[in-house]
Amino acid sequence: MTVKTIVAGVLVAGLLSAASAAQAADSWGLPDEEIARFEAKVVDVLCVLTGDCPADCGAGKRVMGLVKDDGELVLAIKNAGAFSGTINDLTPFCGQRITADGLFTTNYGVKTFALQFVRPEGGEWRGANGFVKDWAAERGKSLKDKEVKQWFRNDATIRALIEAQGKLGLKDQGITP
């Protein structure tokens, strides 16, 4: 075996490793964290629990979830972006099967799922950062924009609320940091 062959082999192994890592969830150090990848059907939770089922899962206005093949309803409460949920990531796949990759976490007995990557059936992996992508697109900005990365400091609704309630929410009680 020549040195060139060994180097090529190492490079291929490195590329395979990088491709795999791109789809695998990162640890966030959450309570009782469990890295997980599973197939599931995308649902709107209100539909599953009440039978009130609009065809489009509420068009982005409902809390979304995942039903695993064993029937367990998973509350996909968090996505891969800062301070954002999964509605924008999952609603486009309403009623469809996907593969979800992320973290289960259990805090005070409440088990929820943080979705980091999603792959539609027959499709490609994509990062679950739909909220911030849409937030940027609505404002004609790039994902690399500093304002977008810190969207929660620049969102008009949040800024107005902090102005009204204070950073601690206790402005009405005269308590501010």
Binding site: L46, G58, K61, R62, V63, G85, T157
Partner: peptide, 16 residues
């Protein structure tokens, strides 16, 4: 799942 009978609990900022 609903705030004041509205399922848009995020968009309407009811919880926020």
């Amino acid at each position: 799942l609903k705030m004041e009978n509205d399922p848009d609990v995020i968009g309407q900022h009811g919880i926020l």
